[in-house]
Amino acid sequence: MADATAAERDAPVLVLEGVHKSYGTTVITEVLRGIDLRVIPGELTAVTGPSGSGKSTMLNLIGLLDRPTSGKVFVAGEEATALDDAGLTRLRGTKIGFVFQFHHLLPGFSALENVMMPMTIASGRPRPWMHDKALALLDKVGLADRADARPSELSGGQQQRVAIARALAMDAPLILADEPTGNLDTETAGRVFELMRELNRTTRQAFVVVTHDPRLAERCDRVVRVVDGRIVSDGPPNGAAHG
């Protein structure tokens, strides 16, 4: 019994097996050239690499927004590459939380409504419950007092904190962030990153964060470096961040 629980706990939340991704029909560019990756619960993984190396492409495949040309993607034990569109949508809604670099929030909805949105989409819970949970999450990211503000009324750092709260709303085992601090000044970026670090420590959700900032990568459990569509190094920050 104890063994099973331990095994379950350490079962990878994300597995990429020989993932290739090409774009184009006449001129074919191979963006990802065989990616193998395993991420276990509670891990905070940084993905770094030069511009155009395929980091966002990889994150979109992990986030089930796109399908690989070949190879397999498993999310929370399910083979995503074997699912149809509806299956992908369901998996995305329940197992994955997103934080984007730009246009993170829905402009027509308040901060609170944005955080409630993933729960609203999944439905099945009474609205007061969603409301309380969203408020608790906003409190966690230090924005409970700004719950009714529209995104346009918030600073960049505040918007990104709301986006993080929203990504956590479904208690998804896998949180993906594509340059979540890319739009913020150094100090704010540091604080937003620290928030993610902290949440990751308390919730045991796995975070995969694409970042250009070596100082942020430094503070992760693990740094995966992508160059030219291949993983060239993968390990704890000291060996990899500047490699």
Binding site: R90, H103, L106, G108, M170
Partner: peptide, 16 residues
């Protein structure tokens, strides 16, 4: 477009 993309990323189906 972006908002639709965000909604889809959060698990909104094509049908919705």
């Amino acid at each position: 477009g972006k908002e639709i993309g965000i909604l889809r990323a959060m698990g909104t189906s094509r049908r919705s």
